[in-house]
Design a protein around this nucleic acid. Structure first.
Lengths: 108, 108
DNA sequence: TAACTATTTGGCAAAATAGCCAAATATGCA
DNA sequence: TGCATATTTGGCTATTTTGCCAAATAGTTA
């Protein structure tokens, strides 16, 4: 595998890794409905503020969200709404996985 | 956050986590071109067979690939081709990230 | 300036992931 | 049966990720 291809695959994996956490998926979904500030999200998630802040910084680092300060608060918004399209495919995976499990039961 | 939603987010995150590795993305791309056996992939990837086998089992566990034995070899194929659509969005993220970096340079 | 609120960062411990080697398993063939 | 090939699994170590607490930073208001 040449190093150019390797590099591209790593860049893609970085983005997927940023998405691959329940809390961060929650944040993405929430931001798809509109801008939210850190304390809003923290309240909804119910974790430590510092934890939520770290998740946000992971998403920002990956280029998935953007932030802007307004007074004391920092508002986050979704930078790349097309990530939402991911989920329809993921649901398809989950669906087929569920069927597969049913089949396993059938074969018993 | 209710536990039903939590559960759904975890299921999605499981699938994204399975995708979030350069080698596994390579495998997905390769399988999108057609069925491949473990030794084919091992040769292309250049890692230990056991490592490649573990990556395959991660993808299988997530419901992304399927395998079938034929004689000594086990052939893997893509179970959910729609994952390929992910990548067009990911490329968009990468593109916008690149632009953002250029802007940073502009501002200096 | 001091006190207060919102957010980020440093530092740590626990848990999850990755990759290798060696050993086990499954199949084919003499 | 015995040997060879293909793949998976056990076991280990190194690395990464996660989440909390405490401390630092940024901005507002008196």
């Amino acid at each position: 595998m040449d190093s150019d291809r390797q590099h591209k695959l790593e860049a893609r994996a970085d983005i997927l890794r940023a998405l691959a956490h329940p809390t961060r998926l929650f944040i993405i979904e929430e931001l798809s409905r509109g801008e939210r500030c850190v304390s809003d999200l923290t309240r909804m998630i119910g974790a430590d503020t510092s934890t939520v802040s770290r998740h946000l910084s992971t998403l920002k680092q990956a280029g998935l969200v953007r932030d802007r300060r307004q007074g004391l608060q920092i508002w986050y918004n979704l930078r790349v709404p097309c990530v939402l399209n991911f989920f329809s495919c993921i649901e398809a995976v989950l669906q087929s996985t569920a069927e597969r499990h049913l089949n396993v039961l059938d074969h018993k």
